[in-house]
């Protein structure tokens, strides 16, 4: 029997793992400086999932479903009662790996911290009942810090983490609501391999944002 805190942690791990944090800031974009607090960039994002709070948490008790959700790019290891270690590769390839530690703060709130990765980063996820019986709001806050070199090259100047976080939340929502994240890459087409690669780039921009 998996405890409630553990299930909750699995949800958080799902969020963290799907985010692909390294990738999130490795992209540049000049518009919209994110808010800054004590040297951290801070972004907030939320998504509404059409299931009650318990439903959202319970979804992650199904180990098989979770493994499928994390397929390939993340592993979870329990450190002690409320702490987990998550190790993941960037979702879109590139081979970069990163580790995060996840801590359950209270029922409905958890934090994570990247312990080994390209950027200093931490985050917080909270579940809140949505009004009018519309299910559950998953609210996330992401903070990250960049070194001077990255900043000089404009890598810091982006709302990309914002978009990546939104993409993550969208994926989590889809998994809970309909059990899959739709993927149309490599659907049949009359494209040559070169055209297909170019189209994959367009798809990624359309899926996650960023400059086309």
């Amino acid at each position: 029997m998996i405890g409630r805190a553990t299930r909750w942690t699995l949800l958080g791990a799902g969020v963290v793992a799907v985010t692909g944090v390294g990738r999130a800031v490795a992209r540049r974009r000049r518009r919209h400086q994110p808010e800054r607090q004590d040297g951290w960039y801070v972004v907030h994002r939320g998504v509404t999932v059409d299931r009650p709070r318990d439903g959202v948490i319970d979804f992650w008790t199904d180990r098989e479903r979770l493994d499928r959700a994390l397929a390939g790019w993340a592993t979870l290891e329990q450190l002690d009662g409320g702490r987990w270690r998550c190790e993941a590769a960037e979702r879109t390839g590139g081979g970069r790996r990163w580790r995060a530690e996840i801590t359950v703060e209270s029922p409905g709130v958890l934090r994570w911290r990247v312990t080994d990765g390209p950027v200093a980063q931490e985050g917080r996820v909270e579940l809140v009942d949505a009004p009018q019986g519309r299910g559950t709001e998953i609210r996330a806050e992401l903070r990250y810090r960049l070194g001077p070199v990255r900043r000089a090259f404009g890598l810091a100047a982006g709302d990309e983490p914002d978009l990546a976080l939104r993409d993550t939340l969208r994926r989590v929502k889809a998994l809970v609501e309909c059990g899959e994240v739709v993927d149309t890459r490599r659907d049949p087409s009359g494209r040559s391999p070169r055209q297909e690669r170019a189209t994959d780039k367009v798809r990624e921009k359309l899926a996650t944002g960023g400059r086309a």
């Binding site: 929502k173 309909c178 739709v182 993927d183 149309t184 921009k205 359309l206 899926a207 996650t208």
Partner: peptide
């Protein structure tokens, strides 16, 4: 909400 995997545009 979930059937367009490329919603950004």
């Amino acid at each position: 909400d979930n059937s367009n995997p490329q919603p950004v545009f």
